[in-house]
Amino acid sequence: MDQMNCVKTIFFDVDDTLYDHLQPLRGALQEVLGLPDTFDYAMAYHHFRYYSDWLSAQEDLSAVPEPDAVERMRSRRFELTMEEFGIALQFGQAQELQRTYLSRQFEITPFQGVYDLIRRLQAEGHMVGLITNGEGPHQRRKLEALDVFSLVDEQLIFISGEIGYAKPDSRLFEHVNKQTRTAADHCYYIGDSWRNDVAGAVDAGWNIIWFNHREASPESDHQPHFTAQNYAEISRILTFEHARS
């Protein structure tokens, strides 16, 4: 078997793919609103991510957004999320939730098994990187908190706010292909968001592993190539694909 044909390009999403994005949201809701442990935080997170993506599309935040538009989106997503549970936020609470949520976003740890998988893939000679939506300085602070820069080559870390395109815009994936001199059909993307990761990667011609650890439902007719609920399953998928090459 030709060793070069076995080498793959594998990129990971960051938020809720490298680490549990629910942790900072749960902490903010408990601190600001005093919600009990019995509250359905998983469902709240589902709504929160949906409204984040929906409002970002409405505000056209895919390129270099206006700061005021970003702040409107960040506050409004909390209001809409809590409305799903019949909770009307008082004046200023949405902004307080955002501030608290932001402060907790850097108290994060990676999912079990993800770094072991990345190290193994690198040892096997695969190109491994990250593609994430968000503002450059903000996402870089998360990556520093996760100690990612000691693990992944910074030249293989692509942040939408530094590029001008955001997932699901296929131009972001095309930019990555151009910069890494790779072909879309040889690239694998691992991400949790249906709208950003599955639809974005499929439309760009990439192979997508939908990291559906929250048992979400599809939001369109796009077809993920693979679905996994944990990193053991992702590892098995990539091992199989490596052996099949």
Rank of each mutant, 00 (worst) to 15 (best):
M127C: 13
L130N: 09
I131S: 08
I131P: 05
E135A: 12
E135T: 06
L143M: 15
E144F: 03
E144S: 12
L146K: 04
L146P: 11
V148I: 15
S150Y: 01
S150V: 00
D153Y: 07
Q155H: 14
Q155I: 00
I157V: 15
G161T: 01
G161S: 04
G164F: 07
K167F: 02
K167C: 00
P168H: 03
D169S: 10
S170G: 11
L172T: 08
F173K: 03
K178E: 13
K178H: 14
R181Y: 09
T182C: 11
A183P: 01
A184S: 15
C187W: 03
I190D: 01
D192S: 04
D192P: 09
W194N: 00
W194K: 00
V198T: 07
G200W: 03
A201N: 10
A201L: 09
V202H: 06
V202G: 00
D203Q: 13
W206C: 05
W206Y: 15
W210A: 03
N212I: 05
N212V: 00
A216P: 02
A216N: 10
A216E: 14
A216Q: 13
S217F: 09
P218W: 06
S220Q: 08
A228N: 09
Q229E: 13
Q229D: 12
N230W: 09
Y231G: 02
A232E: 13
A232L: 07
A232C: 05
E233A: 12
I237V: 11
L238V: 06
